[in-house]
Design a protein around this nucleic acid. Structure first.
Length: 287
DNA sequence: CCCCAGGTCCCGC
DNA sequence: GCGGGACATGGG
């Protein structure tokens, strides 16, 4: 039983991973990263290819943390399966070294990404922070847990709107209610195949194809999920279809074939690459 | 006052 | 199916 633990790290860029728009609550303090994971406050620090973890209460096992961080995943193997003849992914591999996918709590991920639509990442973090401050349970040193679906279902749409989430308040409240009442079973979704799981998630208000894919990728770990947001769409069009705009059908066929078998990792590498190297893409072609 | 943000929903064709 | 606009709020 210990309040600290040490893990060897290989091919793991913690800062890039925690800051890549898949999780919204990590805060950096003096080079250490703090958050609530699996209901526990945790502080992470990297020195010399070693991860040092600290928690508030002694732990007998740390599986909750190794799962969340996906420490046992062999990144090198995944990157080796990226398509050979793709100069854009090759560039992304270089600029995103050590970038990982996390395995987060489904409900927290779902709620976070409902709030993400048409918002910038900084503002999503702000909304989620407000939500936790108001409706989470005290955890440690001022930190609150992420509020449960039952708790949010017990609020009102106006309460949620006060967290500055605008029209998303209606979606979040309705989705929380459907989950709290077991009309949608988040545990069962893990047992479905990718397309059925996506269909099930899209029954919840505020969840379309993009948000569903974020949940399927960042929480459930479906490797074939490929969230298409404004950045990725722009990147796909300019890098892979420079001549003519692909129809949605063409785009999905291309994605399914070209980025197999680790569509989601490829997506995250493209996303992080273009987002941290603005200027690679030019012009806005939203419509 | 303009445009845009890790989109979704709803409408008319 | 697909094209367009509305939607809250904040930042540039």
């Amino acid at each position: 039983m210990s309040r600290t633990a040490v893990f060897p790290l290989r091919d793991y860029n913690l800062a890039a991973t925690l800051n890549s728009g898949q999780a919204f609550r990590w805060r950096e303090e003096n080079g250490a990263w703090e958050n609530i994971v699996a209901g526990r406050w945790v502080r992470l620090r990297v020195n010399d290819k070693t991860l040092h973890a600290q928690v508030a209460k002694p732990q007998k096992d740390w599986q909750w943390l190794t799962d969340y961080l996906q420490l046992e995943v062999n990144l090198k193997k995944i990157l080796a399966d990226f398509p050979e003849d793709d100069p854009h992914l090759a560039a992304a591999k270089k600029t995103c070294r050590g970038l990982r996918l996390l395995k987060q709590d489904p409900w927290e991920t779902l709620a976070g990404f409902i709030c993400s639509s048409n918002k910038q990442i900084v503002q999503i973090q702000q909304i989620i922070g407000e939500l936790c401050d108001r409706y989470g349970e005290p955890a440690h040193a001022g930190w609150k847990t992420f509020p449960t679906a039952v708790r949010l279902a017990a609020t009102t749409e106006a309460d949620l709107r006060d967290c500055r989430m605008g029209y998303r308040a209606k979606y979040l409240h309705a989705s929380a209610s459907m989950i709290a009442s077991n009309e949608v079973d988040l545990t069962a979704i893990a047992t479905l195949d990718y397309l059925d799981a996506q269909t099930e998630l899209k029954r919840l208000p505020g969840i379309g194809p993009k948000v569903a894919d974020c949940i399927l990728l960042f929480a459930y770990g479906f490797p074939e999920a490929f969230p298409i947001d404004t950045w990725v769409l722009k990147a796909l069009r300019q890098l892979y279809f420079p001549r003519r705009r692909p129809t949605p059908r063409q785009l999905h066929t291309f994605i399914r074939e070209h980025f197999a078998p680790y569509h989601g990792y490829a997506q995250q590498y493209l996303f992080h690459h273009v987002r941290t190297h603005d200027g690679l893409l030019s012009g806005n072609q939203k419509t």
